[in-house]
Simulated scan of single mutants.
Amino acid sequence: MSAHIICVTSGGGLPIFSRKKGNSDSLPFSIVGSLNGVHMFGRPLNIEVLNCLTDDYSVAWREFEESLVIIGIASGCSIDVLNKLLESVFNAIVLIVGIEETRWTAEIQVNKHSSDIAGFVETILCPENHLIQIVLDSFTECVDSMFSCVLISGKVAAATENWWSLHPDEISLLSLLASSENPTNSKDIPVFLPYKSPTVAFRFVACTLIPEVQLCCLCGPTPILNDIEHSVLQCFKNSHGHIKCSSPVLSRNFPASYCIDGGILGLLLINTTSGKYMISKNPQQNSKSPRAVPTAWTSFVPFSIGP
């Protein structure tokens, strides 16, 4: 699979950014210009180009806030999935600069990499989840915040009820932001939530507990970062053992004590109510098992994940 994302201004087609993922070559300027031209020159004729399909690729155009046009070209995916990707790219822009700056078509740099299932948040299941949740609730009270979570390798291990009330796209974007650039350093960044608060910024703080494990919260102007880091140390100082015990789960995303039949290649557990999921490749799979079938995932089961 390969994908290209191109963002241009709505009015003049000026390039803002372009990104690609996969092994395909970069798109020639002539193709980029043609893709933009099809959309831009159709507008005076009241023609709106939404998408098209070729033998190998899906192409979609989305205009946002009458300011930005984001074009997606991808192989191996449907138009619905591609449209969801374009929406997530726009939400990533709003997360960093806010909706008002987006309407002014300021030059924006976005680098979004995600293998998440569209519209859902990836979680990790480990025996220590409920213990981490207890400490997380205590920390949340200390910093006077209602929105916080613990990420293990970018996947939600525990979160407050209000964190889960955020839109799944917002949760996924905040998880990506926490692990971007240098994840070992604390982050204190103003962010705009595309659905909850696109005009008024929240303060996003992320602190690393141990490598691959981060604590994130949304808060107001106070407390200052040093005080938040102090609260992290005080609340989690006796929980490092529980957090370290979660590390062996990373290779499969669910406890090793749960034995899965060797004929199952993998699991996809989805909580459709909360918009979260757990996905895993079965490390005990047996390719010689007569029950194994040659598909990517042999189990798709609705399941309750977390609180």
Rank of each mutant, 00 (worst) to 15 (best):
residue 109 Q to C: 00
residue 109 Q to L: 10
residue 110 V to Y: 02
residue 110 V to D: 04
residue 111 N to Q: 03
residue 111 N to D: 10
residue 112 K to A: 12
residue 112 K to T: 07
residue 112 K to F: 14
residue 113 H to C: 04
residue 113 H to V: 11
residue 113 H to W: 08
residue 114 S to W: 14
residue 114 S to D: 02
residue 115 S to V: 06
residue 115 S to T: 15
residue 116 D to P: 01
residue 116 D to A: 02
residue 117 I to G: 00
residue 117 I to R: 00
residue 118 A to M: 13
residue 118 A to W: 10
residue 119 G to H: 08
residue 119 G to C: 00
residue 119 G to L: 12
residue 119 G to W: 10
residue 120 F to L: 15
residue 121 V to I: 11
residue 121 V to Y: 08
residue 121 V to K: 03
residue 123 T to E: 09
residue 123 T to Y: 05
residue 123 T to R: 09
residue 123 T to I: 06
residue 123 T to W: 09
residue 124 I to D: 05
residue 124 I to P: 00
residue 127 P to C: 09
residue 127 P to V: 04
residue 128 E to W: 08
residue 128 E to N: 11
residue 128 E to G: 11
residue 128 E to Y: 07
residue 129 N to F: 14
residue 129 N to E: 15
residue 129 N to A: 15
residue 129 N to P: 05
residue 129 N to Y: 15
residue 129 N to L: 15
residue 130 H to A: 03
residue 131 L to P: 01
residue 131 L to S: 05
residue 133 Q to L: 12
residue 133 Q to E: 14
residue 133 Q to F: 11
residue 133 Q to A: 06
residue 133 Q to H: 11
residue 134 I to G: 12
residue 134 I to L: 14
residue 134 I to P: 03
residue 134 I to E: 12
residue 134 I to S: 11
residue 135 V to T: 12
residue 136 L to W: 04
residue 136 L to F: 03
residue 136 L to P: 03
residue 137 D to H: 05
residue 137 D to M: 01
residue 137 D to S: 07
residue 139 F to W: 14
residue 139 F to C: 07
residue 140 T to Y: 01
residue 140 T to H: 02
residue 140 T to I: 01
residue 141 E to F: 06
residue 142 C to D: 07
residue 142 C to W: 07
residue 142 C to V: 03
residue 142 C to S: 09
residue 142 C to E: 15
residue 142 C to T: 02
residue 143 V to L: 05
residue 144 D to G: 08
residue 144 D to C: 15
residue 145 S to L: 00
residue 145 S to T: 14
residue 145 S to Q: 03
residue 145 S to R: 00
residue 146 M to Q: 14
residue 147 F to M: 04
residue 147 F to E: 04
residue 147 F to D: 01
residue 147 F to S: 01
residue 147 F to Y: 11
residue 148 S to P: 03
residue 151 L to M: 02
residue 152 I to G: 06
residue 152 I to V: 15
residue 152 I to L: 14
residue 152 I to D: 02
residue 152 I to C: 05
residue 153 S to E: 09
residue 153 S to F: 06
residue 154 G to P: 04
residue 154 G to E: 01
